[in-house]
């Protein structure tokens, strides 16, 4: 009952052009049926994400570990709440990040869980920068 060959083939890596995404904006793309949020973060959002005491977080992880160095403005996360799989809404909640409408989990501008029942941070999908304005997810 595991995924069949066509489903696996359809899950191959995809390329996303980032040039149309302005600062403060974000886009949602689908990869393997999952929504991936790509946020072009503002300076304020980056500072907020880096300003917190990492040890105080429920799932401690530094912002540096969640983005690619040299591309700090880009946050790429799988937009599926780690609680029960709903899709959080971007730019909502108290932490300038994501808010899940189902059970009230709140994530910060680095996609890290800050409040609510979710146990873990929004996962970062495997991706790399092909050029300065293009990434490959998968």
């Amino acid at each position: 009952m595991n995924p069949d060959a066509s489903t696996i083939a359809a899950g191959a890596p995809i390329e996303v052009d980032l040039s149309p995404v302005a600062e403060g904006q974000d886009i949602k793309v689908f990869w393997r049926g999952k929504p991936i949020y790509i946020s072009h973060r503002t300076k304020k959002q980056i500072d907020e994400a880096r300003g917190v005491n990492v040890a105080s977080l429920p799932d401690p992880e530094t912002d540096e570990a969640r983005v690619k160095s040299g591309h700090e403005q880009w946050l790429v996360v799988i937009g599926i709440c780690t609680h029960l799989g709903c899709i959080p809404i971007a730019h909502e909640g108290n932490y300038d990040g994501f808010f899940c409408p189902c059970h009230g989990s709140q994530y910060d501008s680095s996609g890290r869980i800050r409040q609510g029942p979710a146990p873990a941070n929004l996962p970062v999908p495997p991706y790399q920068f092909v050029s300065d304005t293009k990434i490959q997810i998968g």
Binding site: M1, N2, P3, D4, R32, K34
Partner: peptide, 12 residues
């Protein structure tokens, strides 16, 4: 994954 037959809830 076994329940879904894919990477998310879908046709399978």
């Amino acid at each position: 994954t076994l329940l879904w037959g894919g990477y998310s809830v879908g046709n399978p």
